[in-house]
């Protein structure tokens, strides 16, 4: 893999790209939502930080929240020519890393994120083809836009491909 071909998706950001590029992100309790259109070798990735968009804000970053980020990523893919029926969807992340943390703040946001992303995908009628969720370790995910496969690296656990 050529390092120059890797596009980093930061916290609360989303990107689309085509082969030969790779989309990469690091996940803790966040969820990485990946859409792939095999016909065009076009991929889109959103780094979702939180479950629900704020109710009291007029402007906000859509990619940050599950309920706004998933539709926004779909919209972005469609605007680049993807067909919804061709989309392959994969989701990763949602770990609980600080076990034993005081519940009033660092709560189990990973599980809430998982539920919110699954709910948002259901709402759009998108089936999830593969997922790697939960656990207690962070993940590095790199999506190869040539094949649509995601390589997931867990610290101290190893690698897997979905």
């Amino acid at each position: 893999m050529n390092e120059g071909n890797i596009i980093n998706v930061n916290m609360a950001a989303m990107h689309t790209a085509r082969a030969p590029f790779h989309l990469r992100t690091i996940l803790g309790s966040c969820i990485g939502v990946f859409f792939y259109e095999p016909r065009m070798k076009l991929g889109g990735m959103a780094h979702i930080l939180l479950p629900d968009k704020p109710q009291d804000q007029r402007s906000f970053n859509a990619a940050k929240y599950a309920d706004s980020g998933v539709p926004a990523l779909l919209e972005l893919m469609l605007s680049e020519g993807a067909l919804k029926r061709n989309l392959i969807c994969k989701i990763c992340g949602g770990a609980k890393m600080f076990a034993g943390f005081s519940a009033n703040t660092i709560s189990d946001i990973g599980s809430r994120n998982q539920a919110a992303v699954i709910c948002a995908l259901d709402g759009l009628g998108i089936r999830t083809h593969a997922k790697d969720l939960g656990g207690s370790t962070g993940r590095k995910i790199v999506a190869d836009l040539e094949t649509g496969l995601i390589k997931i690296t867990h610290f101290n656990v190893g690698e897997k491909i979905i």
């Binding site: 690091i26 996940l27 803790g28 309790s29 660092i106 709560s107 946001i109 590095k140």
Partner: peptide
């Protein structure tokens, strides 16, 4: 764990 993952975890709260 990975620094980026730890920070994302804490900051998301």
């Amino acid at each position: 764990d990975m620094g980026g993952a730890v920070l994302a975890n804490v900051f998301s709260e």
